[in-house]
């Protein structure tokens, strides 16, 4: 596996009519990588995926795959597979014929089609269902047919639109394992789109967080989870206490507040998860406004001069009653340091 870009997007701008959905996007993906496009709806992740598939022609910019410029190559000649969120199986064809559809268009010999479809169905565990119609299958089975249908084409890139969102919890785990297996066995480059940070964190090698048609952050799941670089990413991955910083001080509701440690001057903000907040000691004072018990932990909402603070403690520790005055600390060492606060 080389480090060179296998799929690259350069200065990609995508638009629906006059509405610009994605602007000047640059991204390169290595061969065999499993990448997640993560973001809220309307952030441009699906649009970007559709342009890679060729279902949307870019307003400007360049897409290249495996050393070839495919920007103007039509969708049916790109060697890009797509598993639709709704699976998009052909209702009038049997499972077998659904999987064979693309192979038949390639005019492969019947025996080879037979072999490849049978192998494809076997690999997703649906050999028994070859003669059924899609409507006779469960959602999870339909999705595996869609996966097999794309994979028998041996695409260079496999795109998946919200692959786990229509499944219940048990099937979700199954599908996650399935996708990882397929990726390991075939080494196909995979990109999936999701709005669920949990999915992205658990499945991807690398996550591309998008917002308003631009990339907010690219990184490994650990990077994204522990070191968000912007307020949006921090918020999206579960940081609840997020503050802007200026001149080395925190900007709170009623003026700047000095911290125990000095900050690098280019820090735009700091963010803490509730469990990073130390209760019972520290320079700050707050009043417990509310408390909730969630089994292993207790979560508190504090009224403080900094604004509302969410903190979390082990349920094993003694509970703080609402109304109690508490001291607390926001340890700079634990905080995520934000480069952008927009």
């Amino acid at each position: 596996m080389s480090d060179a870009a296998f799929l690259s997007l350069e200065k990609l701008t995508l638009a629906y009519g006059d509405t610009i959905a994605v602007k000047d996007l640059d991204l390169s993906i290595r061969k065999g990588e499993l990448v997640a496009f993560l973001g809220p709806s309307g952030c441009g992740k699906t649009t970007t995926m559709r342009s890679i598939a060729g279902l949307l022609t870019p307003a400007s910019g360049r897409i290249s795959l495996d050393g070839t410029d495919i920007t103007r190559v039509s969708a049916n000649r790109r060697s890009v597979g797509l598993v639709f969120q709704s699976y998009a199986l052909f209702p009038h064809l049997s499972v077998f014929e659904n999987v064979a559809f693309g192979l038949r268009l390639k005019k492969l010999p019947a025996s080879e089609i037979e072999t490849r479809v049978t192998a494809g169905l076997k690999s997703v565990g649906l050999s028994k269902f070859a003669t059924r119609k899609p409507a006779e299958l469960s959602g999870g089975q339909q999705q595996r047919v869609a996966l097999a249908r794309s994979m028998v084409m041996e695409p260079k890139v496999l795109l998946l639109d919200e692959p786990l969102s229509n499944l219940d919890a048990r099937l979700r785990l199954e599908m996650r394992t399935e996708l990882q297996r397929v990726q390991k066995e075939t080494g196909v480059t995979m990109i999936f789109v999701t709005h669920d940070q949990g999915e992205a964190l658990s499945l991807a090698d690398r996550i591309v967080v998008m917002l308003n048609g631009a990339i907010e952050q690219i990184g490994t799941p650990e990077d994204i989870y522990n070191r968000p670089v912007s307020r949006f990413v921090a918020d999206f991955v579960g940081f609840e206490n997020i503050f802007a910083a200026e001149g080395g001080k925190l900007k709170a509701a009623n003026g700047p507040i000095a911290l125990s440690e000095s900050l690098p001057p280019d820090t735009a903000g700091l963010a803490w998860r509730p469990r990073m907040v130390t209760l019972g000691s520290g320079p700050f004072q707050g009043t417990v406004r509310g408390a909730s018990f969630s089994g292993s932990t207790r979560e508190y909402l504090l009224d403080t001069p900094l604004g509302a603070i969410k903190a979390e403690e082990d349920a094993g520790l003694a509970a703080h009653q609402p109304g109690t005055e508490l001291t607390f600390d926001l340890p700079v060492a634990k905080a995520a340091r934000l480069e952008r606060f927009g």
Partner: peptide, 9 residues
């Protein structure tokens, strides 16, 4: 399903 057909060639 039409997009799916196109992507399959």
């Amino acid at each position: 399903i039409e997009e799916a057909a196109v992507l399959l060639g």
